[in-house]
Amino acid sequence: MSGQKLDFRYLNEQDMIKAGVSDMSGCIKAMEDMFVLLHKGDYRMGGEDANEHGIRVSFPKTSSVEGMPLHKPDYRFMAMPAYLGGRFHSFGIKSYGSNPDNPQKGLPRSILMMSLMDAETGAPLAYMSANILSAMRTGATAGVGARHLCVQNPKTVAIIGPGTMSRYSLNAFVEAQPTIDIVKIKGRGKNSLKNFIEYCKTEFPNIKEYVICDSFEEACEGADIVFYGTTNASKYEDNPTVKKEWLKPGALVIAASALLVDTEFLSDKKVKLISDNYKMYDGWGSGQPLPTQKNVSTLLGMGFYDAVTEGRIMRESITEMGEILAGKKTGRDSDDQILLYAVGGMPIEDVAWGYDVYMNAIEKGIGTKLNLWEKPAL
């Protein structure tokens, strides 16, 4: 092996599209496989507990250093490393920078890249555009919930926050549950609503009706699936919420972003709590001041953690999605049961879908081979 030539594959955004990054059916299958491996423990993420979401560079609210970026909502730079075993057996790092002012420069709010490496040697396998990959895996993770937690033959989906994350999640919902034909939407601006509906009419011709709602309550009413995909509000108290009385019996609430839920709702015996990976929230909140939803993250999973830490619910009352897919626990227990499914985003999701797209690229000869060295200098 000494002195071996080393190449890796670069995949730009168009290469990723050609290699099937937008295949929602395939992505949902990859997320299902990932959840089973998560349950088996055949994975590692960051930190000693192997469950960290990622490493974030935070900026100060004020600074005397010239040119120092200052804190604002959704302004962050992160690296998200992970190993995933099973058929994937790869290590990867997704990195991204997010700035809410980017659209004013004609750029997406977040710009993401994915590095895929050999799990044995650390040699690079691929360096790939990851904006679509990341959106797909987030949507597909929500889609896994729609497939395994929803009532039979759902008709109506409520979308809270009609942004990119919601587009891909709706794609996953329609893939997982083809009977969906009504979409209710609650957004903050007319342009986002208009763009979302225009996109959906092109991509999802089977949807018959779009209903624009003025409140969270109106959007939730009568929906079989309620999806929260909003960005963080400037003030914690202005983040979206949900109440049990707004929901129909049997509703599935999926939150992939900010969602504040009162403890009485979480502790209701008729409500079932599902987590993508509770250990991630537990590690995230450990040692942090309560409520961690206010001090760490507005994700629903942190709300689960707060309720457990405060002794308002038992840890055992939270079911892991991996337990359901591995056949160890049930998902929905009755047609009228309300379910809350917390989706926080994990780098093992990026490794799973990144690996499958990479393998497609190899099979089809897509991408550009780049040489790292003919012979290592060190």
Rank of each mutant, 00 (worst) to 15 (best):
P81V: 04
I132Q: 06
Y96N: 02
M128W: 12
K94H: 05
G97V: 05
L84A: 09
S129G: 06
L125S: 01
Q104G: 06
S134Q: 11
F91Q: 02
F91P: 00
M117K: 01
A123Y: 14
G122W: 10
A123N: 14
P100E: 07
S115H: 11
L112W: 02
G86C: 14
P81T: 04
A119E: 10
P100Y: 07
P108T: 08
M136P: 01
T141I: 07
L133P: 00
V144Y: 09
I132F: 03
A140V: 07
G86M: 13
G85C: 05
G106F: 11
L116G: 05
Y96C: 00
S115L: 15
I93A: 02
Y83S: 01
G92I: 04
F88I: 06
L107D: 10
Q104Y: 10
A119Q: 03
P108C: 09
G122F: 08
M128G: 07
M117N: 14
F88G: 03
S90V: 08
F88V: 05
A119R: 04
P124F: 05
P100V: 10
M136N: 03
T121V: 09
G86K: 14
N102Q: 11
G92F: 02
P100M: 08
M117L: 12
A130G: 00
G106K: 12
S90T: 14
A142T: 15
I111H: 04
S115N: 13
M128E: 08
S110N: 02
L112T: 01
T121G: 07
V144E: 09
T141A: 15
S95K: 01
T141M: 15
M128N: 12
P124G: 07
P124N: 08
D101H: 12
D118A: 02
M136D: 02
H89I: 05
R109P: 01
S115W: 05
S129Y: 09
E120P: 00
G86T: 14
F88R: 06
S95R: 03
A126D: 05
T121K: 11
M136L: 06
P100S: 08
L125P: 01
S110T: 07
D101P: 02
G139K: 14
A119S: 15
S115T: 11
A119T: 02
A79Q: 03
P124H: 07
K105R: 15
D118C: 05
Q104F: 10
H89E: 15
V144W: 08
I93L: 09
L125F: 04
A140C: 10
Q104C: 02
R109E: 10
T121I: 09
G106V: 11
A119I: 03
M114S: 01
G97T: 10
I132V: 12
A123K: 15
Y83P: 00
G106T: 12
K94M: 05
G85W: 07
K105N: 13
A142V: 15
D118L: 02
R87G: 09
S110D: 01
G92S: 04
P124V: 06
